[in-house]
Simulated scan of single mutants.
Amino acid sequence: MTIERVRETDNVLYPWTPVDPLAEALHLLRMRGGFYCRSELTAPWALEMPPVADSVSFHLVVSGEMWLEVPDSASAQLLPGDFVIVPHGAGHLMRSDPSIPSTGCTGRVDLLPQTMIGDHYSVLRCGGGGEQSTLVCGVVEFDHPTARRLVALLPPVLRMDTTGSARRSAPTQVLSLMAEEAQHVQAGGEAVLTRLADILVIMAIRSWIDSAPAARRGWIGALQDPQVGRALAAVHRAPERPWTVESLAREAAMSRSAFAARFTELVGEPAMRYVGRWRMESATVALQDGATVGELASRSGYESEAAFSKAFKRITGVSPGSVRRRTDGTFAARR
């Protein structure tokens, strides 16, 4: 894809006028490689979710209750309608009661017998025969570097608050739809539940950005800055352009020195280091989508494939040739 082609498609990829860098970042929260499970559990029960690198786990309590235990976070009781995200691939425990040992209806979720409803959706039934709890759980990944960067800034546990505000009515409605759909196995249920779950994950992240003090600082805060945010959006839209501090300062309508200082203060690294890393993160996605090293070297302004490959490995820690498709249709960089 040439620079001209990228510019032609900007309005399709980012349909915001004027530029809204934060909206563009949220627009790129597109999930892939998801697996979803409806769990019908009877107390006592205890389930272990193993660590899954570069993933986001979520849990919706449809009925009953559960206790969630995540490393570096206090245990939490979840009741019907509660929706929680564990965003950093951490392993965690779910129990009917915090005193229940992690044995019995027990063990790792991925190793327990399940009924497969589709390639990416299962039903898990187990427990000791007591009070029933129904959960909808899932593990998803994000492709785009913008999305991965945003998810990396989330707290160890993100719990969606759906009470007390008219603005929260939409998440509440989605939760109700998911709860209704999860009550029975029916035609199309997999498609409905998985799509609603994806929507809820995005809503939870958006809610955190709207309310958390931490979202006013760092990279997310920089996206919301009226000047530095415009420069970031320009890089995100066209990382292959021959950016300089001067050209980025013009995007921000600032002097070169003032822009350089403010960018580093808000983002946490100099502008050109950010540009270089962003190019290689975008190149990783392009390689996973089938682009060749030669195409990316030319697109990114490098004189040769060797020069591009050297820069790619220096910034990402892996060679371009090590980026391969996974056999299951998702992607990863093999380290």
Rank of each mutant, 00 (worst) to 15 (best):
Tyr302Thr: 00
Arg237Asn: 12
Trp219Ala: 04
Ala234Asn: 02
Leu28Met: 13
Asp161Lys: 00
Arg262Asn: 15
Ala307Cys: 09
Val245Pro: 03
His120Tyr: 12
Leu112Gln: 06
Met31Leu: 13
Lys313Ala: 14
Leu232His: 02
Cys105Tyr: 00
Pro239His: 04
Gly89Gln: 02
Pro242Cys: 13
Asp198Gly: 14
Asn11Val: 14
Leu93Ile: 13
Gly118Tyr: 13
Ser211Trp: 03
Leu177Gln: 07
Gln173Phe: 15
Ile199Leu: 13
Val318Gln: 00
Glu131His: 07
Arg334Met: 13
Ile202Met: 14
Val275Ser: 01
Arg125Phe: 03
Thr264Cys: 10
Gly221Cys: 06
Asp143Asn: 12
Arg125Lys: 13
Ser319Leu: 11
Pro18Arg: 11
Ala204Gln: 08
Leu41Lys: 01
Lys310Ser: 15
Arg38His: 04
Pro80Ser: 01
Arg335Tyr: 11
Leu47Ala: 04
Leu193Trp: 02
Ala187Leu: 15
Met1Gln: 11
Gln173Arg: 07
Arg326Leu: 12
Leu193Val: 14
Thr330Ala: 10
Val245His: 05
Arg314Thr: 13
Ala333Val: 10
Pro51His: 03
Asp225Pro: 00
Arg230Glu: 04
Gly127Asn: 00
Asp10Thr: 15
Pro51Gly: 07
Glu251Gly: 12
Leu112Cys: 05
Ala76Lys: 05
Leu60Phe: 04
Glu305Gly: 13
Met31Asp: 01
Leu26Asn: 02
Arg237Phe: 09
Ala311Asn: 03
Trp208Thr: 04
Val275Leu: 04
Ser255Gly: 15
Leu111Trp: 14
Ala260Lys: 05
Arg324Pro: 11
Val201Leu: 10
Ile315Gln: 11
Phe263Ala: 07
Ala76Gly: 08
Arg7Val: 14
Gly89Val: 08
Ile205Tyr: 01
Thr106His: 06
Ala212Val: 02
Gly118Phe: 13
Gly34Asp: 06
Ile100Phe: 01
Gly128Gln: 00
Gln288Val: 09
Ala234Leu: 07
Arg195Thr: 12
Leu13Trp: 15
Pro155Gln: 00
Gln183Ser: 14
Ala166Phe: 09
Met49Gly: 06
Ala179Val: 03
